[in-house]
Design a protein around this nucleic acid. Structure first.
Lengths: 129, 129
DNA sequence: ATGGACCTTCCAGTACAGGGGAAGGTCAAG
DNA sequence: CTTGACCTTCCCCTGTACTGGAAGGTCCAT
């Protein structure tokens, strides 16, 4: 399978595939006589895994970790569980931070909405922020 | 006031102050005979505004917009209200996205937790993702 | 044999908000 | 007079996940 075809069936781009290879997420494939990359069908499953992992919010570095463990011949299940657990903690923290920020911004907006703009003057920057 | 002192009282760094000047957030200050930046006390209020705006999640580009309006002699109140409103919408969307992702990841983790790792084999990447 | 689609490598840039460090100038104290 | 703290400009680097484009090679049909 050539790179363009793999890009199409995996729903990505040739640029991304070369980038993943460079980044150590995809093994370097065989080459044809003419120097073209020639992917084995397994590459698609690997790309699906990468896509699903990205959807779960894992970084490429984290995905590479999992793939490296698998490539070493070990089932990465425990590592994946740990990663998901960590990711869940990150998400909870991130959501809590954003909600706190939302309260702050909502408060600022409410304050700003109750004031007659005619009372503003340009010499101070802006008292709402 | 020299740059190091302003950095200290504003709780930032000299690098950041030069960067803000370069980015158009801080006006170029006077220079001493020796070529040192010599800030007027007003710079501190401006930096406080920038800090508060950053805390509210505004980007430097958005803050620059507000400051430009003010520097043109117009009270930027309405603009600030609009920005805060937009920012609130962004936050709501971002929080909703993260919560959806949290559900997905929690589901993945729960699935992963109920399975005996001994049943995993290394030939597939990992069926949890 | 030639056109066009596809591929190759390599270099550079995107957005964000600065940080690191070199080479050199300034200023006050000792 | 020299030391040390502070300042100047300059350019490159950080991390994330790609994206764009140039110059050139390959392959297949016409």
């Amino acid at each position: 399978m050539r790179i363009g075809e793999l890009a199409q069936v995996s729903g990505t781009t040739t640029k991304t595939l070369r980038f993943y290879e460079e980044a150590g997420l995809l093994p370097a494939p065989e080459r044809t006589a003419g120097g073209y990359r020639d992917y084995a069908p397994e590459a698609l499953a690997r790309l699906d895994f990468i896509r699903r992992s990205r959807t779960a919010g894992l970084t490429l570095a984290q995905i590479r970790e999992v793939l490296d463990i698998r490539d070493a011949g070990v089932a990465p299940c425990q590592h994946v569980q740990d990663l998901l657990e960590t990711r869940l903690g990150d998400l909870d923290r991130q959501i809590a931070d954003l909600q706190a920020l939302r309260h702050t911004v909502a408060r600022l907006r409410d304050d700003a909405a109750t004031v007659d703009p005619a009372n503003c003057d340009a010499t101070t920057v802006c008292r709402y922020l």
